[in-house]
């Protein structure tokens, strides 16, 4: 085992994995995290804690991870390269590992323009692919990227994100391969709505054998309303919600759209589960964590397996 994390064990045992995410609050109240974490508990193998997503200042991901763990769920630390140079990144990685965080997601981070501090300096000392390489070097070689020996290597199950729906499509799988080459153990995809594009993406990825090198967790986000669908489609770069998906929601009366969104999400998870090369699902129920149990249970993925280290394939 590279990290010994629960997520790594579940995937290594060949079980279909489930992750979700918690966005930390815009304040210092730990109860906000603990409340969200209660909805996650028992429904996932690990829970992502986002790192100042959309460049809006929130409680730090590491602090959020510790609170999630305190509530009984294994955390997954998201780390963006937007705000920290390589010195700070390495330092935070050591700290996170020392505190027992074992799952990591390496991201570039949304540009600071989108947040409430657009005047902030952006760092981007290294990019997300180089961060993967940096963590792997520290974990597997026991040295800092500078070559200096580590006094205790950090242990992480190293993740990355991919967006099959951004442009240019032809470079999306090659870019995923770069992440695999850099050392990613698992990937969580951007929310999938366009199953045709995703199927094409997976065909390309499988041709390169990427599904055998990296555990692929397909990302889904339940839609609460037709308004949310239209907003995301129009306003969020790299989100592709096809017209028939929007129409299915629009055909429902307003008060039934949320239930329909959940039904569609469950259907989609079941389809993804049957796709070759998909090792799990990442359910991003944005500010809708209370529905995780219904979605994941509805997809037949509960209870979550308990895998001891001895049961995993080495």
């Amino acid at each position: 085992m590279k990290s010994g994390s629960n997520l790594e064990r579940v995937l290594a045992a060949g079980q279909f994995a489930v992750t979700a995410e918690c966005g930390p609050p815009r304040g210092a109240d730990p109860e906000k995290v603990l409340k969200k974490a209660e909805f996650v508990k028992g429904n996932v193998d690990a829970c992502n804690v986002t790192d100042n997503q959309t460049s809006v200042v929130r409680m730090s991901s590491l602090a959020g991870c510790l609170l999630v763990r305190q509530s009984g769920t294994e955390p997954l630390l998201q780390m963006v390269v937007r705000d920290r140079n390589r010195i700070a990144l390495q330092s935070d990685l050591l700290g996170a590992s020392a505190l027992g965080v074992r799952n990591l997601l390496c991201l570039s981070g949304d540009h600071q323009k989108f947040g409430d501090d657009p005047q902030a300096k952006n760092v981007f000392d290294i990019d997300s692919i180089q961060l993967i390489h940096l963590v792997k070097t520290m974990r597997d070689d026991g040295v800092f990227p500078s070559g200096e020996k580590l006094d205790g290597a950090p242990k992480f199950f190293i993740g990355c994100a991919v967006n099959p729906f951004a442009d240019p499509f032809e470079i999306r799988v090659p870019r995923f391969k770069l992440k695999a080459d850099a050392g990613a153990d698992f990937v969580q995809t951007q929310c999938i709505y366009n199953m045709d594009t995703f199927t094409r993406y997976m065909e390309e990825a499988k041709k390169m054998g990427l599904h055998e090198r990296v555990k692929i967790l397909a990302g889904v986000t339940p839609l609460k309303s037709v308004g949310m669908a239209k907003f995301m489609n129009k306003m969020v770069a790299g989100i592709d919600i096809p017209e028939p998906v929007i129409k299915r929601l629009a055909d429902e009366p307003k008060e039934k759209q949320a239930a329909k969104g959940i039904e569609m999400c469950i259907e989609q998870i079941q389809q993804l589960k049957e796709m070759e090369g998909i090792a799990g699902v990442h359910v991003m129920a944005i500010e809708w964590e209370e529905k995780l149990n219904e979605i994941i249970g509805g997809a037949g993925l509960l209870p979550r397996p308990v895998v001891d280290e001895g049961e995993t394939e080495r």
Partner: peptide, 29 residues
């Protein structure tokens, strides 16, 4: 590239345009 990425483009590249502004072409595209 608005993020000075060495392995772009990031997930915010759509239709050759950078997520930062409609007036900015995606450098990696």
């Amino acid at each position: 590239c608005a993020k000075s990425l060495f392995h772009g483009p990031c997930g915010g590249s759509v239709g050759g345009i950078c997520e930062v502004s409609r007036d900015v072409p995606c450098g990696w595209q």
